[in-house]
Design a protein around this nucleic acid. Structure first.
Length: 1134
RNA sequence: AGUCUCGUAGCUCAGUUGGUUAGAGCGCUACACUGAUAAUGUAGAGGUCGGCAGUUCAAAUCUGCCCGAGACUACCA
């Protein structure tokens, strides 16, 4: 045997490795990418007009990156790399989100200040400077994780939301909205007020985010009151009254009695049934008729009281006497007017249009009375209901005639509130020393007591419920009307829903469900934030608010400043920094010559990030062409928590400003939890450090695990054991397969080139099979990636590498690599395995960019066809060659695998080791194509299970015992109820009946007197075990082994055992794979017969120049050949 | 509180338009195999498919209610 060995070659073509070290591979490939500028190349080599557009949702760099960022960014990177391979130009501009509350909070914490200090102990200027310096604090850490995890994104030229250019683009969008009109002529950017959470103690409004901070909702005990609202007697209400004296009142419940003086309406559910009961007022005993929801009656009236005489009641009695006196729907009650409950403040307008019953969908009968006391300034639902029903607000008009609430911004009743004037509406707002006084009574209680005294209370009691508190002052929040600037998103909601239906959501239910429902109930977007560090609202107004201007560009600002300078005799310039406080100092002028000041608000940071498609390019002031090519996005991805965040703001701005979607495909990934399924949090100490994980297991194992373990939109229970499994199972197997290839390719001097490929048709069955599987894999993986189904794609790859490539192809083809000299068969094996490795490297590249590139480079670097790219990420994705997908062949091989598996299980059961050859295997045949199929893979089966021959057993042999089972799928539809009886009959079919059915193609079955025609398709036929044989079967396939042993078979078995033990010796003694040896074996009967018959074979297999059997081999080693047999062997190098 | 998602072996997950023995990997036990060896094969143990009811000849799969987990939205008076 002549063979070029590694030692005689100058340099092996393919690198070989001792063991897999993914972290080391990361380093090697990172250095390579850096040196060759591979990322940039992968973009530059593609045509700008053939682009796949990706938007990076900007992270905030004032916090450290966590493992969940690795998750989100793996999804992003994967599809960007995949589409790059497909030939698209995928530009990936990075970005930083720099504004917002978390930044302010962190600064305040570090400086030890609160909002109250701003403008006092610290200037806005200093405060904002502190914010600016902190927002990119962890940029280095972020850059580092980005690089280490292999996330390709352009961090050299990121967009930054605090940048003047970025702000200018946002201003342009705001101006666009300001100019845009609804059909009714309303602007899309307007000032209005809504009911918002407000903390009087802190003097500031709170965002919903602040309200969702942990611990904000606390269980508190408040005083609740059911008030009795006296119905006015007039034509409209006549139906409620039975006689002149009747006192009819509507019951309404509240947990905030302090809002009762502000009551202007009672809201009922239009479809809810209401009853009138004649009863008494519990506190006074006066007769009264009460209206409440029928469903709530039993909550307040004990049935024992029904029909009891009313005049017998005394105020201390437990049971109220009552009598039902009519039922109406809410609709019937709508329009009824009632007397104001606590008439401190009123107006002619209110008397005219207020104090009446209105309808509302939000009313339920779960608690209360089914009637909602409605105070528009102190409840969002109340406010909407009043606006919708044209009920005026109650309050005191200010200088400009705007009606102000009866509670001021400190949380106190206004002066007009009589004996309540100046009282805080919540006890917590009083100083502690006041509250701790003995006779202190909360305002709620005082109001309740007044109602009681006035005979306006039905019931007063304590009530426990959850109520939001200000996270800063720990005092209860008030819902309070606040001025705000709004984007009229509700006017575009139909169009948003329409465009949303064209977006491909992953998973789909996020788009149709969570996002779709959200769009249906869309409210206007509250843009205002009363803060310091953010994009200033570019609107200037005169003091009375009559005239205003919205600035849409620096150029326009310059012009307006010039004009103001001229008219107002000022010397102002466009500030170098568009943030507060500089922008606040700018005074513009109205066309009638009055000064205009900037509205003090900043805009919601979500507007910043939703503007990124435009602002990242400073559109429309620059880069118009770049913008056009990069809009809208083909693909974005973020966590599912962004559904109402970034996903929404992108969509809203695109719809309103451009009548377009902002993205066509969107993947929302789930949360990363710890392995128990708990949320990761610093306080629990279960946070996974992404740097540590990547250093230990490598970036690829981390990425692969996250994508393959479960769909990315499911929550991931992050478990390190899973990383280890991925490392061993996928990368380990692939590594072994490559190393195997490299070892023998180097020995044989094999180099893969495109010009001497063995023609496909000439390749052996096994090669054509794995190639068929490979091209099926290409097709499947492409389809899954195209569908944004990374998990399915990766699992297909895992299945291929593990089951097909490693455990079948390489195992069966192994001998072809190490036996003999280079031949066409051998070359075919090398080329086939090479192709598999190359394609797998490429298909894995989007998910595992490091290992894949390493594998690709090992396969190509020193032995490459000219012009081959130097990185897998610069290649063009393979197309599935459908010519090579041979489903017949795949079926054949599946037969082979299953037959082998069954045969091996018989060997195991019968304790017949695989090295012991057997005479034959028998296969019962049920259809003719079976023989043809199995014959195609006959040799593989025989060698794999070490059997000499296959014998097919057909009907004609008279050995087959068939068993029929009903095919429920075909029969069930036709037979319905008779199915069970039919199944029983079919199961009892004899061989003859089955054969008759097969011969005639039909059979009549009588069930319950009805005849049904049965065809062969209606049966599933299997064979029972062959009598007298050792058999195994599963799912219609039966295998029988001839276990009869001859001397020759035994000798051959022993010979094989000897080969194996000798090979083990070679290995233990560290012989080179090509070393020649000399063997001596101690004489025994079984040894002698084995060597006599198979000595030649043993020598060939073990590269032995000599094989001698001696009476005594003293220096030999004793080895066990089987349970009974041993041998003493000595092996030495020649 | 509402909306949505999820609940299948000890763990992580598959399970097609409903079809009769509910699968895989990991882990565990036993035995093999190995010139790829931190692998691999075979066999075994391990399931009231969250619970209850319904539709159907037939339900892990469809419907309703309930329980549990999570996310989002929430002052429902």
């Amino acid at each position: 045997m002549t063979r070029t060995t590694a030692s005689t070659m100058a340099k092996p073509t393919y690198r070989e490795f001792k063991q897999l070290n993914l972290a080391e591979i990361d380093q090697e490939i990172l250095a390579f990418w850096k040196e060759r500028n591979t990322f940039q190349q992968s973009i530059d080599q593609r045509d700008p007009e053939h682009s796949f557009v990706f938007y990076e949702g900007p992270p905030s760099a004032n916090g450290k990156p966590g493992i969940h960022h690795v998750m989100a960014r793996t999804v992003k990177d994967l599809f960007c790399r995949y589409n790059t391979l497909k030939g698209y130009r995928v530009e990936r501009k990075g970005g930083w989100d720099t504004h917002g509350l978390p930044v302010e909070l962190q600064v305040e914490k570090e400086l030890g200040i609160t909002k109250e200090d701003i403008g006092k102990s610290i200037t806005v200027d200093q405060y904002n400077a502190a914010c600016r310096s902190t927002v990119l604090r962890y940029k280095d850490l972020w850059d580092d994780i980005t690089r280490k995890m292999g996330y390709w994104v352009d961090l050299e030229h990121p967009y930054i939301t605090f940048d003047n250019h970025y702000i200018e683009s946002c201003w342009h969008l705001l101006r666009t909205l300001y100019d845009k009109r609804t059909p009714a002529g309303d602007s899309f950017l307007y000032k209005g007020f809504t009911i918002q959470p407000f903390s009087p103690a802190a003097g500031t409004g709170l965002s919903s985010h602040e309200l969702n901070l942990p611990g904000c909702y606390k269980e508190v005990t408040d005083i609740s009151a059911i008030a009795m609202f006296k119905v006015r007697r007039e034509d409209r209400s006549a139906f409620l009254f039975e006689d002149e004296q009747e006192d009819v009142r509507i019951l309404a419940w509240t947990t905030t009695p302090w809002t009762l003086p502000s009551n202007v309406a009672l809201t009922v559910g239009p479809k809810i049934n209401y009853v009138k009961v004649r009863t008494v007022s519990p506190y006074t005993g006066d007769p009264v008729s009460l209206v409440l929801a029928q469903d709530r009656l039993s909550a307040y009236f004990d049935p024992a009281g029904e029909g009891q005489p009313i005049d017998a009641y005394a105020p201390s009695d437990k049971i109220l006497p009552y009598a039902l006196a009519g039922t109406w729907t809410g609709n019937d009650l709508v329009g009824l007017r009632y007397e104001q409950l606590l008439p401190y403040v009123t107006s002619p307008d209110l008397e005219e249009r207020g104090f009446r019953v209105i309808p509302g969908d939000f009313v339920t009968t779960e608690d209360g009375t089914g009637v909602v006391h409605t105070a528009p300034y102190f409840g969002a639902d109340d406010f909407r209901a009043c606006v919708a029903n044209d009920v005026p607000f109650i309050g005191i008009p200010d200088d400009r005639g705007v009606i102000q609430p009866l509670v001021d911004r400190q949380g106190r009743f206004v002066d007009e509130m009589g004996e309540f004037a100046g009282m805080y509406v919540k006890p917590e707002y009083y100083p502690d020393d006041v509250r701790s006084q003995k006779d202190f009574k909360p305002t709620d209680l005082l109001i309740a007591l007044k109602l009681k005294d006035d005979n306006k209370a039905f019931k007063i009691e304590k009530y426990k419920h959850n109520y939001p508190h200000c996270w800063r002052t720990d005092k209860p929040v008030l819902y309070y009307p606040l001025d705000s600037w709004f984007i009229r998103a509700s006017a575009a909601k139909e169009r948003m829903a329409e465009l949303n239906r064209t977006i491909n959501w992953k998973p789909a239910h996020t788009g149709t469900g969570r996002f779709g429902v959200w769009l249906q109930n869309l409210q206007d977007w509250n843009l205002s934030r009363t803060r310091y560090w953010g994009i200033p609202l570019p609107i200037w107004r005169t003091e009375d608010g009559d005239l205003e201007i919205c600035i849409g560009s620096i150029e326009q600002l310059q012009k307006e400043i010039d004009m103001a300078n001229k008219v107002l005799k000022l010397d102002q310039h466009v500030p170098n920094d568009l943030h507060r406080p500089y922008i606040d100092e700018i005074i513009l002028v109205s066309h009638d010559g009055r000064p205009m000041h900037r509205e003090a608000d900043l805009i919601d940071v979500w507007f910043d990030s939703g503007s990124m498609p435009y602002a990242q390019w400073h559109y429309p002031f620059e880069n118009e062409e770049t913008f056009r090519r990069n809009y809208p996005a083909d693909f974005i991805a973020e966590g599912v928590d962004q559904t109402r965040g970034w996903f929404y703001t992108l969509h809203a701005i695109a719809t309103m400003c451009f009548d377009s979607v902002a993205y066509k495909n969107v993947v929302s990934n789930g949360l990363v939890l710890d392995k128990e399924g708990n949320k990761m949090s610093k306080s629990k100490g279960n946070v996974v450090d992404p740097f540590e994980t990547i250093n230990t297991y490598g970036a690829d194992a981390t990425r692969w695990y996250m994508m393959a373990n479960a769909d990315p939109w499911e929550n991931l229970k992050f478990d390190e054991a899973g990383l280890l499994e991925v490392r061993n199972k996928y990368f380990g197997t692939l590594f072994n397969t490559y190393n195997f290839f490299a070892l023998y390719a180097n020995l044989d001097g094999f180099v893969n080139t495109s010009d001497d490929q063995v023609p496909y048709a000439d390749r052996p069955e096994l090669d054509r099979w794995i190639l068929s599987k490979l091209h099926s894999l290409v097709r499947d993986v492409r389809r899954h990636f195209d569908d944004y189904e990374p998990t399915k794609a990766l699992r297909a790859l895992e299945n291929f590498v593990d089951r097909h490539l490693s455990n079948w192809y390489v195992r069966l083809a192994r001998r072809r690599f190490w036996r003999g000299e280079m031949s066409e068969d051998k070359r075919s094996a090398y080329q086939t395995l090479y192709e598999c490795l190359m394609v797998v490297a490429q298909l894995s590249a989007p998910a595992a960019p490091f290992f894949s590139d390493w594998l690709y480079q090992n396969l190509t670097r020193s032995a490459t066809d000219a012009g081959q790219p130097d990185s897998v990420h610069l290649t063009d994705l393979y197309e599935a060659d459908t010519q090579r997908i041979d489903t017949d062949l795949e079926t054949r091989m599946e037969y082979a695998q299953r037959i082998c598996s069954l045969a091996l299980s018989i060997r195991k059961r019968e304790k017949l080791r695989v090295r012991l050859p057997l005479q034959k295997v028998m296969l019962p045949v049920l259809d003719s194509s079976f023989i043809q199929q199995v014959d195609g893979v006959k040799d593989l089966i025989l060698s794999e299970i070490n059997v000499k021959a296959i014998e097919y057993v057909t009907d004609a042999d008279g050995l087959l015992v068939k068993q029929a089972k009903a095919n429920f799928k075909t029969l069930g539809k036709r037979l319905g109820k008779d199915m069970k009886a039919a199944a029983d009959q079919i199961a009892a079919f004899s061989n003859e009946q089955i054969n008759a059915l097969e011969a005639n193609g039909s059979l009549a079955l009588t069930i319950n007197g009805v005849e049904h025609a049965i065809t062969p398709e209606d049966l599933v036929i299997t064979t029972e075990d062959l009598p007298g044989w050792k058999t195994a079967s599963e799912e219609g396939l039966t295998v029988a082994l001839d276990v009869h042993l001859t001397d020759e078979l035994l000798a051959e078995g022993t010979a094989r055992d000897l080969v194996n033990r000798i090979q083990n010796q070679r290995k233990e003694q560290d012989f080179d794979v090509t070393d020649r040896i000399r063997i001596r074996i101690q004489d025994e009967d079984h040894i002698r017969s084995a060597v006599a018959a198979f000595g030649q074979h043993i020598q060939e297999e073990t590269l032995a120049d000599a094989l001698v059997v001696e009476a005594r081999v003293t220096e030999g080693i004793q080895v066990e050949l089987s349970d009974e047999l041993t041998a003493i062997i000595h092996v030495e190098r020649v």
